[in-house]
Simulated scan of single mutants.
Amino acid sequence: MDILSVIGIVVAVGAILLGQLLEGGHVSSIIQGTAFLIVIGGTTGAVMLQYPLKVFIQSLKILPWIVLPPKGDPQAAIRQILEWSDTARKNGLLSLEATVDSVPDPFVKKGLQMLVDGTDPEKIRSTLEQEIGAIEHHDTQAAKVYESSGGYAPTVGILGAVLGLIHVMENLADPSKLGGGIAVAFVATVYGVGSANLFFLPVANKLKSIVHNRALLQEMQVAGLVAIAEGENPRIIEGRLQSYFAH
Score class of each variant (00 low, 15 high):
Asp174Trp: 01
Asp174Cys: 02
Pro175Ala: 00
Pro175Ile: 01
Pro175Asn: 00
Pro175Arg: 00
Pro175Thr: 00
Ser176Arg: 02
Ser176Tyr: 04
Ser176Gly: 00
Ser176Ile: 01
Lys177Leu: 04
Lys177Phe: 06
Lys177Asn: 01
Leu178Trp: 00
Leu178Cys: 01
Leu178Glu: 00
Leu178Phe: 00
Gly179Leu: 04
Gly180Met: 04
Gly181Trp: 03
Gly181Ile: 05
Gly181Asp: 02
Ile182Lys: 03
Ile182Glu: 07
Ile182Tyr: 08
Ile182Ala: 02
Ala183Ile: 14
Ala183Gly: 15
Ala183Thr: 14
Val184Gln: 12
Val184Trp: 14
Val184Thr: 15
Ala185Arg: 09
Phe186Trp: 13
Phe186Gln: 12
Phe186Val: 14
Val187Arg: 04
Val187Trp: 06
Ala188Lys: 11
Ala188Gly: 09
Ala188Leu: 04
Thr189Trp: 06
Thr189Val: 15
Thr189Asp: 07
Thr189Phe: 15
Thr189Arg: 12
Val190Leu: 15
Val190Gly: 14
Val190Pro: 04
Tyr191Glu: 10
Tyr191Lys: 03
Gly192Leu: 07
Gly192Pro: 13
Gly192Ile: 08
Gly192Glu: 09
Val193Gly: 14
Val193Asp: 10
Val193Leu: 13
Gly194Asp: 14
Gly194Asn: 04
Gly194Thr: 15
Gly194Lys: 12
Gly194Trp: 15
Ser195Ile: 06
Ser195His: 07
Ser195Thr: 15
Ala196Gly: 13
Ala196Pro: 02
Asn197Ser: 06
Asn197Thr: 06
Asn197Arg: 11
Asn197Cys: 13
Leu198Met: 09
Leu198Gly: 09
Leu198Asn: 01
Phe199Val: 14
Phe199Cys: 11
Phe199His: 15
Phe199Gly: 08
Phe200Asp: 03
Phe200Gln: 04
Phe200Trp: 08
Leu201Lys: 09
Pro202His: 09
Val203Trp: 08
Val203Leu: 09
Val203His: 03
Val203Tyr: 10
Ala204Gln: 05
Ala204Arg: 06
Asn205Glu: 14
Asn205Trp: 12
Asn205Ile: 13
Asn205Gln: 15
Lys206Phe: 10
Lys206Asp: 01
Lys206Gly: 03
Leu207His: 12
Lys208Tyr: 09
Ser209Asn: 11
Ile210Tyr: 10
Ile210His: 11
Ile210Arg: 07
Val211Met: 06
Val211Ser: 02
His212Ala: 01
His212Pro: 00
Asn213Pro: 02
Asn213His: 12
Arg214Ile: 05
Arg214Cys: 05
Arg214Ser: 05
Ala215Val: 04
Ala215Phe: 13
Ala215Leu: 10
Leu216Pro: 02
Leu216Thr: 06
Leu216Val: 07
Gln218Ser: 01
Gln218Gly: 01
Gln218Val: 01
Glu219Met: 10
Glu219Leu: 11
Glu219Val: 05
Glu219Pro: 06
Met220Trp: 03
Met220Leu: 08
Met220Gly: 01
Met220Glu: 02
